[in-house]
Amino acid sequence: MRIFGVQLRKELRELWRTRKLIVVLAVLVGFGLMSPILAKITPDLLEQFSEGQMEGIVITIPEPTERDAIDQFLKNISQFGLLLALLMSFGVIVGERERGQLALVFPHPLPREVFVLAKFAALAILFVVGMLLSALGAYLYTVLLFDAPSLGGFLALTWLMIVWLLCLVALSLLASALGRSMVAAGGIAFVLIIAVLLASLFTPLAPGQLLDWGRALAVGADAPARWDALIVTLGLSALAVSANCLILRRQEIG
């Protein structure tokens, strides 16, 4: 536990010193603010576009509401949040191994599972804080530009998105331990994430179902609670982190 604390502090300081912390937070906040704005101006853009293209045809586009703002937020995070989770995670273990930093620190009393747990914990902190700030921005702008959506539903959506993102982080991190090189790790992470996304098409237990559930809660729509998908997602994340510990423990370094 003491060593975990030391290692987590190192990881967090690394995120800060290498500017990754500030950049990820800025991007997440940016997407939070952008979503309601996009929802607001999309009809105008469509209108201008269609006026120029198809004269004489009248298209009525309904006035956007806070629902559209929430949908935009969900869409942006599910696309760019995913990319961010991938980019921030897949290189961290394979990178330290490739560069030889692991060969320097592992002979010291740093259990490899503690190393993995601290990496995951640092990324989890980064994404939880980032997503909360992002959601705050999205909510404030939604209130400014539309009507206020239900705060409880919006918070539920935010946390379900966080759980979903952390599952992707855990999978990318697993790829980072598995990959022999940076490129290989990126490829494995990509394949794992695609597999998880495709699973949504086949089973209501897939992590992606959390996003539908969250959307329903945020816009007040009628949709079944997906506690089972939540348990599967948390379990998959725990499994990925545990497998990561086992793999790294057996791995030869250097």
Binding site: I3, Q101, L104
Partner: peptide, 25 residues
């Protein structure tokens, strides 16, 4: 000491030794 040791470039020399000392308690 590996043949070509590589460090965390963002740390100072003192910070790195502090980190190692902390790992050893």
């Amino acid at each position: 000491l590996p043949d070509t040791p590589s460090f965390y470039g963002w740390m100072t020399a003192r910070e790195f030794l502090r980190y190692i000392a902390d790992l050893h308690g």
